[in-house]
Simulated assay, not measured.
Amino acid sequence: MQNRDLPVVLSIAGHDPGGGAGIQADIETIGALGGLPASVITCLTVQDTVNVERIAPVEPTLVEEQLECILQDYQVGAIKIGLLGDARIASIIGAVLRRHPRVPLVLDPVLAAGGGKEMTRKGLIDAMQYDLFPLVSLITPNSEEARRLTGEQDLAACAEQLLHRGIDAVLITGTHEESEEVINQLYRPGLGTLALSWPRLHGSYHGSGCTLASAIATILALGTPLEEAVEQGQQLTWDALNHATHPGRGQAIPHRRL
């Protein structure tokens, strides 16, 4: 019998063989926060802590079959979407999700790897906009991703554009901005901006965006209101980064065993 007290959080993302980002990062975060992680693989990758060498998207029909299988079996409490890799995958995910009851959906729009490798293919951003954005409860781009998704430079204008495209709320993270502290800003229609600042940690981290998005999704699945979930997710992510390990030659890996 399914334990209804353990919320199912579905991660739709790529596989990182080094375990720093993607599905494994999501599974660790979801489990640490008291959720039951379910997963749908969108891409296989060749990558390490330095950079991504190759992305191999899964056949879109296989993504569809994975997703339908889980949604017909589990009562999913929240969904986190990460690396998509292909426009057809984004479109199929949107079509499947429209056939099922809506649950909180957190989108981490992975557009490039930390080492600079491009993570999108032709038409992917357009497919995300038309097929996924209207279903998204919260999108969590960093400032560079927000500018790329909208063509705007001012971050408030970026958020306005994303909200106008059907997204319920926008959290723009400020790691890539030149400021003494990291300032993350939550934008919602008709409400003031909620800005939270965090001490800037030295170095760079592999899977920080995955950790943040999956943490917020899990906290939402536990029934926490959005504003509180966003604050708690940021705190948990900062703690994981602050206790990160350095198993490889490149970026540090967040310690997600919270």
Results as ranks from 00 to 15, higher is better:
V9Q: 01
R99G: 10
L71I: 04
G233Q: 05
A95R: 12
Q234R: 06
A95G: 11
V103G: 10
Y74N: 07
P141E: 03
S11T: 08
T120A: 01
T42Y: 07
A195L: 14
I27H: 04
E118H: 09
Q235F: 05
W238G: 00
L220C: 01
W198M: 09
D86S: 11
G82Q: 07
I183F: 11
R148A: 07
L44W: 13
A95W: 14
R165G: 02
G114Q: 09
K80Q: 01
A32W: 11
T237F: 00
A240S: 04
I253H: 06
G166N: 14
P189A: 13
G31Q: 12
Q66T: 13
L135H: 00
I92G: 05
K122W: 12
Q161S: 14
L111V: 12
Q129E: 15
G14W: 01
D16A: 04
P134Y: 13
G192F: 11
I55M: 13
C43P: 03
L258T: 05
L111T: 10
V40S: 06
Q185N: 09
N51F: 12
G22I: 13
Y205S: 02
R200K: 12
L191N: 08
Y205D: 01
T45G: 01
V58T: 13
P254M: 09
Y130K: 15
L236T: 01
V76W: 02
V63A: 03
S39F: 10
I167Y: 04
G248L: 08
R88N: 12
E68R: 14
T150K: 10
G18T: 07
L84V: 15
D86A: 11
